[in-house]
Deep mutational scan, measured.
Amino acid sequence: SQHQEELPPPPLPPGWEEKVDNLGRTYYVNHNNRTTQWHRPSLMDVSSE
């Protein structure tokens, strides 16, 4: 059986914070524009500005 090492997730872009809601779900807060989202932001998402 193949065992895959879990890679650590990439660092969050500046201004982002990973949080967990009261149901144990992980979400991400963008403090730059005060938004939240479910999927993890990547540095590539942000660098397109």
Score class of each variant (00 low, 15 high):
residue 6 E to P: 03
residue 31 H to M: 13
residue 43 L to N: 13
residue 26 T to Y: 01
residue 3 H to Q: 02
residue 49 E to D: 04
residue 15 G to D: 06
residue 32 N to Y: 07
residue 34 R to S: 12
residue 4 Q to W: 00
residue 1 S to A: 03
residue 1 S to C: 03
residue 32 N to Q: 10
residue 2 Q to F: 05
residue 8 P to G: 09
residue 38 W to I: 07
residue 43 L to S: 14
residue 16 W to Q: 02
residue 20 V to W: 04
residue 35 T to W: 10
residue 18 E to L: 05
residue 27 Y to M: 07
residue 31 H to Q: 06
residue 44 M to R: 13
residue 39 H to Y: 07
residue 29 V to R: 07
residue 2 Q to K: 03
residue 49 E to L: 08
residue 35 T to M: 08
residue 10 P to G: 10
residue 13 P to T: 06
residue 11 P to L: 09
residue 21 D to V: 00
residue 41 P to Y: 00
residue 37 Q to A: 09
residue 27 Y to S: 04
residue 35 T to R: 07
residue 40 R to I: 01
residue 2 Q to S: 00
residue 23 L to I: 08
residue 44 M to Q: 10
residue 30 N to T: 03
residue 7 L to T: 07
residue 25 R to K: 12
residue 46 V to G: 14
residue 16 W to S: 03
residue 4 Q to V: 06
residue 27 Y to N: 01
residue 34 R to D: 11
residue 15 G to R: 06
residue 37 Q to G: 02
residue 18 E to R: 06
residue 38 W to G: 06
residue 33 N to S: 14
residue 16 W to A: 02
residue 9 P to V: 13
residue 32 N to V: 05
residue 24 G to T: 03
residue 35 T to S: 06
residue 9 P to C: 08
residue 25 R to P: 00
residue 15 G to N: 09
residue 4 Q to R: 05
residue 35 T to C: 12
residue 30 N to M: 03
residue 1 S to W: 00
residue 15 G to C: 07
residue 39 H to P: 08
residue 24 G to Y: 03
residue 40 R to K: 13
residue 6 E to V: 05
residue 38 W to S: 15
residue 14 P to L: 14
residue 40 R to H: 07
residue 36 T to I: 02
residue 42 S to Q: 14
residue 30 N to W: 01
residue 2 Q to W: 00
residue 6 E to S: 08
residue 10 P to Q: 06
residue 10 P to D: 08
residue 3 H to G: 03
residue 17 E to K: 08
residue 23 L to G: 14
residue 45 D to I: 02
residue 49 E to V: 00
residue 48 S to H: 04
residue 36 T to L: 01
residue 28 Y to E: 01
residue 3 H to L: 07
residue 6 E to I: 15
residue 30 N to E: 03
residue 34 R to V: 07
residue 46 V to E: 13
residue 14 P to I: 15
residue 19 K to L: 07
residue 7 L to D: 14
residue 11 P to S: 11
residue 27 Y to R: 05
residue 26 T to R: 09
residue 33 N to F: 14
residue 48 S to M: 06
residue 32 N to K: 15
residue 31 H to S: 11
residue 26 T to Q: 06
residue 34 R to F: 12
residue 9 P to K: 10
residue 21 D to W: 00
residue 35 T to G: 08
residue 41 P to N: 00
residue 42 S to F: 05
residue 19 K to C: 05
residue 22 N to Y: 14
residue 8 P to D: 10
residue 16 W to Y: 03
residue 23 L to T: 13
residue 31 H to L: 11
residue 43 L to A: 13
residue 22 N to F: 02
residue 34 R to G: 13
residue 28 Y to G: 01
residue 32 N to F: 08
residue 48 S to V: 10
residue 23 L to D: 13
residue 35 T to K: 11
residue 23 L to W: 11
residue 2 Q to A: 01
residue 36 T to P: 03
residue 43 L to R: 12
residue 3 H to A: 04
residue 33 N to D: 08
residue 29 V to P: 02
residue 2 Q to D: 09
residue 8 P to F: 04
residue 25 R to W: 03
residue 17 E to I: 09
residue 13 P to E: 06
residue 30 N to G: 04
residue 31 H to P: 10
residue 23 L to V: 11
residue 37 Q to P: 00
residue 34 R to A: 13
residue 37 Q to I: 04
residue 17 E to Y: 04
residue 38 W to E: 09
residue 45 D to L: 08
residue 17 E to P: 00
residue 41 P to C: 00
residue 31 H to E: 12
residue 18 E to S: 09
residue 27 Y to W: 05
residue 11 P to E: 09
residue 29 V to E: 10
residue 24 G to F: 03
residue 24 G to C: 04
residue 22 N to P: 12
residue 4 Q to Y: 14
residue 23 L to H: 14
residue 39 H to A: 14
residue 47 S to Y: 07
residue 28 Y to C: 01
residue 11 P to V: 13
residue 4 Q to F: 14
residue 14 P to M: 13
residue 25 R to N: 15
residue 29 V to W: 07
residue 4 Q to G: 00
residue 21 D to Q: 01
residue 23 L to K: 15
residue 45 D to T: 14
residue 31 H to V: 12
residue 11 P to K: 14
residue 13 P to H: 03
residue 31 H to A: 10
residue 11 P to Y: 05
residue 25 R to G: 07
residue 9 P to L: 07
residue 33 N to P: 08
residue 7 L to V: 11
residue 42 S to G: 10
residue 47 S to L: 05
